[in-house]
Amino acid sequence: MRSVVALAIITFKEGIRNRALFGIGLMALFLLGLNVSVAGFFMRDIGKVTVDMNLSALNFAGLLLVFFVAINLMAKDIDRKTIHLVLSKPISRSQYVWGKYGGILLFLSVSLAFLFLFSCLTIALLLALYPDYFGAFSWGQFVVAATFVLVKLAVLTAIVLFFSTITTSSLVTLIFSLGSYIAGVTIEEVVFYLKSDWATQERVVSESLRTVIDVLSYLLPNFTVFDFSLEAAHGLPIAFERIVLALGYAGGYSAILLLLAGFIFARREFN
């Protein structure tokens, strides 16, 4: 456990001191600032637009952090053979995977917490400027939605680590992870469409393709499960069961991926 924590700490420090982080942070802050300046154009929808823009900025910044910083935190170790030094210590391959995951998660949490703080300031400012248009807004729902942005990124990080263990290049990891993310965001809609009467009447999708998509829907992550932006923007209640289920799904999916990654990584040769 000490090895895992030690590895997580150095991974976190490597990530948090990366210069790319400043660029991503500045861009996110720009988006949040933009929110303040353009909010007045939306009048009655100010509350909804503000929450939407804030969550989108958090989500976008988080994705950039995963795809441009987190991928490198693992891939650079392998590319530059730093992993040879690390694995010469009494650290098992699966401990390495879990340590890296912990470090990246900590890095994402701290980065997003910083952006979340600014996001809250933006909302508080607009709430003070236009109190009449934030009728249904609830801080609780906003916090839940923002937390699930992090949960989604935690699942995405597990996917990134999984692909890092089976590929030899960070570019291939990026392509596979990006592909999984796009598929994960859209798969639910595809499945709903296929199950709808519309699709049955049109018969544009063959049975075999339907089966493939059905199988894929179980394999691919369903990222829409973690999307609470609609509830946060409109002030709709969020069922406790849904939160528990989404957390359970994220934990289960990530754990399975990380166990698989550890298993594959233990068999990998470093030449």
Partner: peptide, 13 residues
């Protein structure tokens, strides 16, 4: 204890 040829250590540490 292992010292590789040209050790690549963590840049930001």
């Amino acid at each position: 204890g292992y010292l590789p040829e040209n050790p690549y250590l963590y840049d930001h540490l």
